[in-house]
């Protein structure tokens, strides 16, 4: 049976340490100037007057309904059988339609190939070896949970049933497979 890979970013557990950011760079040998993944730390003043930080994982959210794949004229951007959105650099003409169409700003243009690229959940490297994505492997506080939604026994399904989550920009109908556990301190922002 095909997999349906998904990830949870629990912003209560996240400390914004960028371990994921650097592990991704190390595993995927990213060119210096670009990032597949960053965690943005945003200062927040809560309604009760207290201060805090919100942690936003900036990366591809692996939509079910993929604006990037829809607009790509050559199928260079595609969703594979396991639900992961990938780029076939060979087919890419570099129109950047996908980069523009992504509501999550998840795509960057690789300075070497000049083709857009993005987080792949480490599909080519680690998943094929039966390993979790690099970011999940290193996350010091286990703020990231990765797994197969089609497997009822998977940890991600357990966690999804236990913690309240939301998806970013749900109203767009993209149905991302990146679930966010909101910071208990603040309101849910989508």
């Amino acid at each position: 049976m095909a997999k349906k890979y998904a990830m949870i970013h629990d912003s209560n557990l996240c400390i914004g340490c960028q371990a994921c950011n650097v592990a991704c760079r190390s595993e995927n040998q990213l060119p210096e100037s670009v990032y597949r993944l960053q965690v943005w730390i945003k200062p927040e003043e809560y309604p009760n007057g207290t201060l805090g930080y919100e942690y936003h994982r900036q990366s591809c959210v692996h939509c079910e309904n993929t604006p990037c794949v829809n607009v790509c004229p050559t199928h260079a951007s595609f969703k594979n059988e396991d639900g992961i959105v990938l780029v076939d650099v060979d087919l890419c003409v570099g129109c950047l339609y996908c980069v523009a169409a992504c509501p999550y700003q998840a795509r960057y243009v690789d300075p070497v190939t000049k083709a857009p690229n993005k987080c792949t959940f480490c599909y080519e490297s680690r998943l094929s070896r039966g390993e979790e994505p690099a970011c999940v492997t290193v996350c010091p506080t286990e703020a990231l949970v990765f797994g197969d939604l089609n497997d009822p026994q998977s940890k991600i399904n357990t966690v999804l049933s236990e913690r309240v989550t939301y998806q970013q920009k749900e109203r767009l109908g993209t149905n991302p497979k990146m679930f966010i556990v909101p910071n208990h301190k603040g309101g849910i922002k989508s």
Partner: peptide, 21 residues
């Protein structure tokens, strides 16, 4: 690729950004 040693339970096989670098 550098990760934490998973056999070390207190660190759970985890590593920080500096460690990854």
């Amino acid at each position: 690729f550098i990760r934490g040693n998973p056999k070390d339970k207190s660190r759970g096989g985890k590593v920080c950004a500096r460690g990854s670098a």
